[in-house]
């Protein structure tokens, strides 16, 4: 029998707004451009991590969302990362292919895989845990749910950070949530959809 798991915390980032556990945490509607929004959000969080500026926008979204979700520190170094999106790293692939016409950019090439984001988060928080990145047409709550449960059931982790981090044509959709053995909200598909859907159209 599978054990009862909980959604401990969540973060949503959409339309220049950040929601933490359902409440508006940050807003920057003057910055429609994702790069400026991400730069301002970084400054607002008072993070000092110069490698942030070297990341592509997709990795920045996952990275800064994780910083907000965990208050800058993932204490449990066994926290598994279960991420996914629909567009993979298509934006960065496009930028990289443009540089190939003249001088291919090594620093862009590094980000032509979506799971690099997981590496960035793992390096920042010294995680050596399980991680996986799914590509699916749209947010699939059951996929995240079943995979995370199996990690718990197999004893591979006792904490999971899940993330739907999608970026297409300057439009981003970020939903991060922490699954643990304690918390206030039961982990099930309905609750996940309840958190994910309200500000998403």
């Amino acid at each position: 029998m599978s054990e009862v798991l909980y959604i401990k915390n969540s973060v949503l980032i959409r339309d220049a707004k950040v929601y933490q556990n359902g409440r508006l945490y940050y807003e920057d509607t003057k910055s429609p451009d994702i790069s400026i929004f991400l730069k301002n959000l970084y400054k607002s969080e008072k993070i000092r991590y110069s490698k942030y500026f070297k990341m592509d926008d997709l990795s920045k979204l996952g990275f800064i969302g994780t910083e907000i979700l965990f208050g800058g520190n993932i204490e449990n170094k066994e926290t598994a990362l279960v991420f996914g999106n629909a567009a993979s790293c298509l934006e960065t692939d496009r930028y990289y292919s443009e540089t190939m016409e003249e001088f291919p950019s090594p620093s862009l090439f590094v980000y032509t895989l979506p799971n690099i984001m997981l590496g960035e988060i793992s390096i920042r928080h010294q995680l050596r845990s399980e991680n996986i990145f799914f590509i699916s047409e749209k947010f699939d709550s059951s996929l995240f749910l079943e995979y995370s449960k199996s990690l718990f059931n197999q004893g591979k982790t006792d904490n999971v950070l899940c993330g739907w981090v999608d970026l297409q044509n300057n439009d981003y959709d970020v939903f991060l949530w922490e699954i643990a053995r304690s918390g206030k909200t039961y982990l099930n598909e309905e609750e996940l959809k309840n958190i994910y859907l309200p500000t998403h159209e």
Partner: peptide
């Protein structure tokens, strides 16, 4: 990676 960028 920065070293490669400097070569470019």
């Amino acid at each position: 990676i920065d070293a490669l960028e400097l070569i470019v």
